[in-house]
Design a binder for these strands. Structure first.
Lengths: 119, 119
DNA sequence: TCCTTAGATTGACATTGGTCAATGTATTGA
DNA sequence: TCAATACATTGACCAATGTCAATCTAAGGA
Protein backbone atom coordinates (compact mmCIF):
# COMPACT_ATOMS: atom_id res chain seq x y z
CA UNK A 1 0.00 0.00 0.00
CA UNK A 2 2.94 2.26 -0.56
CA UNK A 3 2.24 3.36 -4.11
CA UNK A 4 -1.19 4.48 -5.18
CA UNK A 5 -2.24 4.51 -8.81
CA UNK A 6 -3.93 7.48 -10.39
CA UNK A 7 -7.61 6.65 -10.35
CA UNK A 8 -9.99 9.14 -11.96
CA UNK A 9 -13.09 7.08 -11.24
CA UNK A 10 -15.27 10.12 -10.80
CA UNK A 11 -18.96 10.32 -11.37
CA UNK A 12 -20.02 12.22 -14.44
CA UNK A 13 -23.63 11.23 -14.69
CA UNK A 14 -25.77 13.98 -16.09
CA UNK A 15 -28.28 14.12 -13.25
CA UNK A 16 -26.03 14.77 -10.33
CA UNK A 17 -22.65 15.57 -11.72
CA UNK A 18 -19.82 16.11 -9.28
CA UNK A 19 -16.66 17.25 -10.88
CA UNK A 20 -14.21 16.67 -8.07
CA UNK A 21 -11.20 14.74 -9.30
CA UNK A 22 -10.71 11.46 -7.53
CA UNK A 23 -7.24 10.86 -8.80
CA UNK A 24 -4.83 9.04 -6.49
CA UNK A 25 -7.48 7.55 -4.21
CA UNK A 26 -10.42 5.15 -4.25
CA UNK A 27 -13.82 6.28 -5.40
CA UNK A 28 -15.94 8.10 -2.83
CA UNK A 29 -19.02 6.27 -1.58
CA UNK A 30 -21.50 8.83 -2.93
CA UNK A 31 -19.82 8.77 -6.31
CA UNK A 32 -20.09 5.01 -6.33
CA UNK A 33 -23.79 5.38 -5.61
CA UNK A 34 -24.55 7.67 -8.52
CA UNK A 35 -22.36 5.75 -10.96
CA UNK A 36 -24.11 2.56 -9.88
CA UNK A 37 -27.44 4.23 -10.55
CA UNK A 38 -26.36 5.07 -14.08
CA UNK A 39 -25.10 1.55 -14.68
CA UNK A 40 -28.27 0.01 -13.27
CA UNK A 41 -30.29 1.98 -15.79
CA UNK A 42 -28.20 0.44 -18.57
CA UNK A 43 -27.97 -3.06 -17.13
CA UNK A 44 -31.06 -4.52 -18.73
CA UNK A 45 -31.30 -6.28 -22.10
CA UNK A 46 -34.51 -4.51 -23.08
CA UNK A 47 -33.08 -1.08 -22.26
CA UNK A 48 -29.85 -1.78 -24.15
CA UNK A 49 -31.90 -2.79 -27.17
CA UNK A 50 -34.00 0.36 -26.84
CA UNK A 51 -30.90 2.53 -26.81
CA UNK A 52 -29.53 0.63 -29.75
CA UNK A 53 -32.75 0.95 -31.74
CA UNK A 54 -32.96 4.66 -31.04
CA UNK A 55 -29.34 5.13 -32.05
CA UNK A 56 -29.86 3.15 -35.23
CA UNK A 57 -32.68 5.41 -36.37
CA UNK A 58 -32.26 8.39 -38.61
CA UNK A 59 -31.65 11.47 -36.46
CA UNK A 60 -31.22 9.04 -33.56
CA UNK A 61 -34.89 9.40 -32.80
CA UNK A 62 -37.63 6.78 -32.49
CA UNK A 63 -41.24 6.65 -31.39
CA UNK A 64 -42.69 4.04 -29.10
CA UNK A 65 -44.32 2.27 -32.02
CA UNK A 66 -40.87 1.58 -33.49
CA UNK A 67 -39.95 -0.15 -30.26
CA UNK A 68 -43.11 -2.21 -29.84
CA UNK A 69 -42.48 -3.50 -33.34
CA UNK A 70 -39.02 -4.84 -32.55
CA UNK A 71 -39.26 -5.84 -28.90
CA UNK A 72 -41.47 -8.69 -27.74
CA UNK A 73 -42.68 -6.74 -24.74
CA UNK A 74 -45.97 -5.11 -23.90
CA UNK A 75 -46.43 -1.40 -24.50
CA UNK A 76 -46.59 -0.55 -20.76
CA UNK A 77 -43.36 -2.44 -20.16
CA UNK A 78 -41.63 -0.50 -22.92
CA UNK A 79 -42.95 2.75 -21.51
CA UNK A 80 -41.54 1.73 -18.15
CA UNK A 81 -38.08 1.10 -19.60
CA UNK A 82 -38.22 4.40 -21.46
CA UNK A 83 -38.99 6.20 -18.24
CA UNK A 84 -36.03 4.57 -16.54
CA UNK A 85 -33.73 5.69 -19.34
CA UNK A 86 -35.13 9.24 -19.35
CA UNK A 87 -34.83 9.51 -15.57
CA UNK A 88 -31.23 8.32 -15.78
CA UNK A 89 -30.44 10.96 -18.37
CA UNK A 90 -29.74 8.71 -21.34
CA UNK A 91 -32.84 9.58 -23.37
CA UNK A 92 -35.05 12.61 -23.85
CA UNK A 93 -38.68 12.65 -24.88
CA UNK A 94 -40.21 15.00 -27.43
CA UNK A 95 -43.95 14.82 -27.88
CA UNK A 96 -45.27 15.83 -31.27
CA UNK A 97 -48.95 15.30 -31.79
CA UNK A 98 -49.96 11.91 -30.53
CA UNK A 99 -46.48 10.49 -30.84
CA UNK A 100 -43.61 10.53 -28.39
CA UNK A 101 -40.18 10.60 -29.93
CA UNK A 102 -37.20 9.48 -27.92
CA UNK A 103 -33.63 10.45 -28.70
CA UNK A 104 -30.22 9.88 -27.18
CA UNK A 105 -28.73 12.51 -24.91
CA UNK A 106 -25.40 13.31 -26.59
CA UNK A 107 -22.43 12.30 -24.50
CA UNK A 108 -24.41 10.53 -21.82
CA UNK A 109 -23.15 7.08 -22.73
CA UNK A 110 -19.65 8.35 -23.31
CA UNK A 111 -19.60 9.79 -19.80
CA UNK A 112 -20.22 6.39 -18.28
CA UNK A 113 -17.82 4.74 -20.69
CA UNK A 114 -15.17 7.28 -19.84
CA UNK A 115 -15.42 6.61 -16.13
CA UNK A 116 -15.09 2.88 -16.65
CA UNK A 117 -12.20 3.14 -19.05
CA UNK A 118 -10.33 5.42 -16.67
CA UNK A 119 -9.97 2.85 -13.90
CA UNK B 1 -36.36 5.14 -40.99
CA UNK B 2 -34.53 5.23 -44.30
CA UNK B 3 -30.99 5.82 -43.08
CA UNK B 4 -29.36 3.59 -40.52
CA UNK B 5 -26.40 4.73 -38.46
CA UNK B 6 -23.33 2.62 -38.00
CA UNK B 7 -23.82 0.94 -34.66
CA UNK B 8 -21.03 -1.28 -33.35
CA UNK B 9 -22.81 -2.14 -30.13
CA UNK B 10 -21.34 -5.61 -30.02
CA UNK B 11 -20.79 -7.69 -26.94
CA UNK B 12 -17.20 -8.09 -25.93
CA UNK B 13 -17.59 -9.50 -22.45
CA UNK B 14 -14.81 -11.89 -21.52
CA UNK B 15 -17.02 -14.83 -20.60
CA UNK B 16 -19.00 -15.33 -23.74
CA UNK B 17 -17.41 -13.15 -26.34
CA UNK B 18 -19.05 -12.97 -29.74
CA UNK B 19 -17.06 -11.01 -32.22
CA UNK B 20 -19.66 -10.46 -34.91
CA UNK B 21 -19.81 -6.82 -35.90
CA UNK B 22 -23.17 -5.25 -35.37
CA UNK B 23 -22.51 -2.20 -37.44
CA UNK B 24 -25.43 -0.67 -39.33
CA UNK B 25 -28.14 -2.44 -37.28
CA UNK B 26 -29.52 -2.65 -33.78
CA UNK B 27 -27.90 -4.89 -31.21
CA UNK B 28 -28.90 -8.55 -31.29
CA UNK B 29 -30.99 -9.79 -28.37
CA UNK B 30 -28.40 -12.29 -27.13
CA UNK B 31 -25.69 -9.65 -27.25
CA UNK B 32 -27.91 -7.37 -25.23
CA UNK B 33 -28.27 -10.17 -22.68
CA UNK B 34 -24.57 -10.71 -22.14
CA UNK B 35 -23.74 -7.01 -22.10
CA UNK B 36 -26.51 -6.51 -19.56
CA UNK B 37 -24.98 -9.26 -17.43
CA UNK B 38 -21.63 -7.50 -17.45
CA UNK B 39 -23.24 -4.17 -16.57
CA UNK B 40 -25.29 -5.74 -13.79
CA UNK B 41 -22.09 -7.00 -12.21
CA UNK B 42 -20.76 -3.44 -12.18
CA UNK B 43 -24.00 -1.71 -11.21
CA UNK B 44 -23.58 -1.84 -7.45
CA UNK B 45 -21.93 0.78 -5.24
CA UNK B 46 -20.09 -1.78 -3.15
CA UNK B 47 -18.70 -3.54 -6.21
CA UNK B 48 -17.60 -0.28 -7.81
CA UNK B 49 -15.78 0.61 -4.62
CA UNK B 50 -14.19 -2.82 -4.51
CA UNK B 51 -12.91 -2.41 -8.06
CA UNK B 52 -11.68 1.05 -7.22
CA UNK B 53 -9.91 -0.08 -4.08
CA UNK B 54 -8.24 -2.96 -5.90
CA UNK B 55 -7.15 -0.62 -8.70
CA UNK B 56 -5.79 1.89 -6.20
CA UNK B 57 -3.56 -0.70 -4.56
CA UNK B 58 0.02 -1.30 -5.50
CA UNK B 59 0.14 -3.98 -8.20
CA UNK B 60 -3.64 -3.53 -8.48
CA UNK B 61 -4.02 -6.31 -5.95
CA UNK B 62 -5.83 -6.37 -2.61
CA UNK B 63 -6.79 -8.94 -0.02
CA UNK B 64 -10.21 -9.22 1.58
CA UNK B 65 -8.93 -7.62 4.76
CA UNK B 66 -8.15 -4.43 2.81
CA UNK B 67 -11.78 -4.32 1.74
CA UNK B 68 -13.35 -5.06 5.10
CA UNK B 69 -11.32 -2.15 6.46
CA UNK B 70 -12.76 0.36 4.01
CA UNK B 71 -16.28 -0.90 3.38
CA UNK B 72 -18.91 -0.92 6.08
CA UNK B 73 -20.14 -4.33 5.08
CA UNK B 74 -19.87 -7.73 6.66
CA UNK B 75 -17.17 -10.13 5.51
CA UNK B 76 -19.66 -12.57 3.94
CA UNK B 77 -21.25 -9.73 1.98
CA UNK B 78 -17.88 -8.65 0.66
CA UNK B 79 -17.05 -12.22 -0.29
CA UNK B 80 -20.35 -12.33 -2.14
CA UNK B 81 -19.57 -9.20 -4.14
CA UNK B 82 -16.10 -10.51 -4.92
CA UNK B 83 -17.60 -13.70 -6.28
CA UNK B 84 -19.94 -11.71 -8.52
CA UNK B 85 -17.02 -9.73 -9.91
CA UNK B 86 -14.89 -12.83 -10.45
CA UNK B 87 -17.75 -14.66 -12.16
CA UNK B 88 -18.30 -11.66 -14.42
CA UNK B 89 -14.64 -11.66 -15.39
CA UNK B 90 -13.60 -8.36 -13.85
CA UNK B 91 -11.45 -9.77 -11.04
CA UNK B 92 -9.26 -12.79 -10.51
CA UNK B 93 -8.44 -14.47 -7.23
CA UNK B 94 -5.00 -15.66 -6.18
CA UNK B 95 -4.78 -17.54 -2.91
CA UNK B 96 -1.44 -17.35 -1.11
CA UNK B 97 -1.33 -18.95 2.32
CA UNK B 98 -4.38 -17.93 4.30
CA UNK B 99 -4.99 -14.81 2.25
CA UNK B 100 -6.89 -14.31 -0.97
CA UNK B 101 -5.62 -11.59 -3.24
CA UNK B 102 -7.88 -10.07 -5.85
CA UNK B 103 -6.68 -8.23 -8.92
CA UNK B 104 -8.22 -6.58 -11.96
CA UNK B 105 -8.48 -8.52 -15.20
CA UNK B 106 -6.66 -6.28 -17.67
CA UNK B 107 -8.93 -4.88 -20.33
CA UNK B 108 -12.14 -6.17 -18.85
CA UNK B 109 -13.46 -2.76 -17.92
CA UNK B 110 -12.23 -1.24 -21.15
CA UNK B 111 -14.22 -3.82 -23.09
CA UNK B 112 -17.46 -2.72 -21.53
CA UNK B 113 -16.50 0.95 -21.82
CA UNK B 114 -15.67 0.46 -25.47
CA UNK B 115 -19.06 -1.01 -26.27
CA UNK B 116 -20.86 1.87 -24.57
CA UNK B 117 -18.74 4.54 -26.16
CA UNK B 118 -19.33 3.05 -29.60
CA UNK B 119 -23.08 3.65 -29.61
C1' DT C 1 -2.76 -31.98 18.18
C1' DC C 2 -5.36 -27.89 19.20
C1' DC C 3 -6.40 -23.16 18.62
C1' DT C 4 -6.58 -19.08 15.92
C1' DT C 5 -7.13 -16.58 11.78
C1' DA C 6 -8.69 -15.58 6.78
C1' DG C 7 -11.99 -16.28 3.98
C1' DA C 8 -15.92 -18.96 1.56
C1' DT C 9 -20.63 -20.97 1.82
C1' DT C 10 -25.26 -21.59 3.37
C1' DG C 11 -29.76 -20.12 4.65
C1' DA C 12 -33.02 -16.69 5.64
C1' DC C 13 -34.94 -12.25 5.07
C1' DA C 14 -36.43 -7.80 3.10
C1' DT C 15 -36.04 -4.97 -0.87
C1' DT C 16 -35.77 -4.06 -5.55
C1' DG C 17 -36.99 -4.81 -10.29
C1' DG C 18 -39.24 -6.62 -14.66
C1' DT C 19 -43.55 -7.80 -16.44
C1' DC C 20 -48.42 -7.44 -17.75
C1' DA C 21 -53.60 -6.38 -17.43
C1' DA C 22 -56.40 -2.74 -16.67
C1' DT C 23 -57.13 1.96 -16.78
C1' DG C 24 -56.19 6.90 -17.56
C1' DT C 25 -54.94 10.97 -20.64
C1' DA C 26 -54.28 13.61 -24.73
C1' DT C 27 -54.58 14.23 -29.49
C1' DT C 28 -56.53 13.45 -34.02
C1' DG C 29 -60.20 12.69 -37.29
C1' DA C 30 -64.94 12.18 -38.58
C1' DT D 1 -69.19 15.66 -29.97
C1' DC D 2 -67.74 10.98 -30.38
C1' DA D 3 -64.64 7.34 -31.51
C1' DA D 4 -60.07 5.85 -32.31
C1' DT D 5 -55.21 6.10 -31.69
C1' DA D 6 -50.64 6.62 -29.05
C1' DC D 7 -48.82 6.52 -25.02
C1' DA D 8 -48.50 6.91 -19.76
C1' DT D 9 -49.79 5.32 -15.16
C1' DT D 10 -51.42 2.21 -11.64
C1' DG D 11 -51.56 -2.03 -9.24
C1' DA D 12 -50.34 -6.63 -8.64
C1' DC D 13 -47.32 -10.49 -9.01
C1' DC D 14 -43.15 -13.16 -9.19
C1' DA D 15 -38.09 -13.39 -9.69
C1' DA D 16 -33.77 -11.58 -8.72
C1' DT D 17 -30.68 -9.21 -5.52
C1' DG D 18 -28.19 -7.29 -1.35
C1' DT D 19 -27.47 -8.18 3.34
C1' DC D 20 -26.25 -10.58 7.58
C1' DA D 21 -25.85 -14.45 11.17
C1' DA D 22 -24.25 -18.82 11.47
C1' DT D 23 -21.36 -22.24 9.87
C1' DC D 24 -17.70 -24.46 7.23
C1' DT D 25 -12.88 -24.98 5.29
C1' DA D 26 -8.16 -24.48 5.15
C1' DA D 27 -3.69 -22.70 6.62
C1' DG D 28 -0.40 -21.37 10.43
C1' DG D 29 1.46 -21.29 14.87
C1' DA D 30 2.12 -22.98 19.63
Amino acid sequence: MTFTRTLPLTDISQADACSSSLARSAIAPDHADSLARSLKALADPARLRIISIVAAHADAEACVCDLTDQLTLSQPTISHHLKVLVDAGFLTRAKRGTWSYYSLVPGSLDSVAGVLAAV
